[in-house]
Design a protein around this nucleic acid. Structure first.
Lengths: 172, 172
DNA sequence: CTTTTTTACACCTAGGTGCCAAAC
DNA sequence: GTGTTTGGCACCTAGGTGTAAAAA
């Protein structure tokens, strides 16, 4: 994923579908992004290879899904998307974006908490879900051209860079 | 204000600045819009004149400010705007917009409630504020050309209709 | 030197305006 | 006829893309 000072979204967005919630209870959904290992990487010969020890980490910020809190019934009615979460490499960020180190490997984590309001969060039990396939490398500029092309082909905001059939495919 | 099936915002937006809240308490801000009288109007000879009894009313919908709930400290830090509230004349509206009758006179009301979450709203005391100067006529098309010009001159989304100095004035 | 980051930019999506002709 | 409402539209604001050159 690209990280910038101004903040960038993740693409494709992280989405969850939930079942088994108590319809009448209120839930808060959260996401944080943690390091996968303590390595710094570089992209060499078309592969990511370890390039030393990890840079110092910022304290991790929790992203609260903006629809929180909401009833179990409503959460289960639809696919919930975390597309508004933004990533930055600005360690002095004042926007509440998630701060990451470039050239490091990260794992998003999804948290489900039963709570009526945010003030009660600290006392509640977190149910945490990790999907390994959502791990990614943070970069300030794309290293792998295949990744670039995937984004261009599928992110509607990058449609201006399409040259072939991909535009037509997404249009329908 | 213009009302459409698809929903229109109010312009200029309704804004409030608050003081005297308990910094540590949570508050929910709401707005509803009630009839000023039981008359239907028409615009005749450049004036609004009564043109019969009011049309039947829909049950009034409460608009909850999207930042709710939020601490008194945060509410007082900034001017709070209700610009996202939308008006419609569609009595079958499914978007939760405020439903009004065209050619009727309305009064927005601002409500302040101390509550940690929405589920507790029904049991709480509402502090209601009415500013008479915010009353307005609902229309599907502007009747008074002076109102049209005021909107064009000051609403940034209508900049395309400006022909004179108003554009320059707003630009700075 | 090399590698990584920053910045301005053209090009999009998404959605808020009043206008105007047509419909009711 | 008249008065009011609807729907498509051009023109905006606001903001999400990768690019390419410059900066670090």
């Amino acid at each position: 994923m690209v990280i910038t000072k101004a903040g960038r979204r993740m693409f494709p967005p992280y989405k969850v579908r939930m079942s088994g919630l108590d319809k009448k209870c209120q839930y808060i959904l959260l996401m944080d992004i943690v390091s996968v290992d303590s390595c710094r990487y570089k992209f060499h010969n078309n592969h990511w290879v370890v390039a030393g020890k990890a840079d110092p980490e910022m304290p991790k910020r929790m992203y609260i899904h903006p629809d929180s809190p909401c009833s179990g019934e409503r959460w289960m009615q639809r696919v919930v998307s975390f597309h508004k979460l933004k990533l930055t490499n600005d360690i002095a960020d004042k926007n509440g974006f998630v701060i990451l180190n470039s050239m490091h490997k990260y794992q998003p984590r999804f948290h489900l908490v039963q709570a009526n309001d945010l003030s009660k969060l600290p006392y509640k039990r977190f149910r945490t879900f990790v999907f390994k396939e959502t791990a990614f490398m943070a970069v300030t500029a794309y290293q792998n051209t295949k990744i670039t092309q995937l984004k261009i082909d599928h992110n509607p905001f990058a449609k201006g860079f399409r040259v072939n059939g991909a535009a037509k495919r997404d249009k329908r």
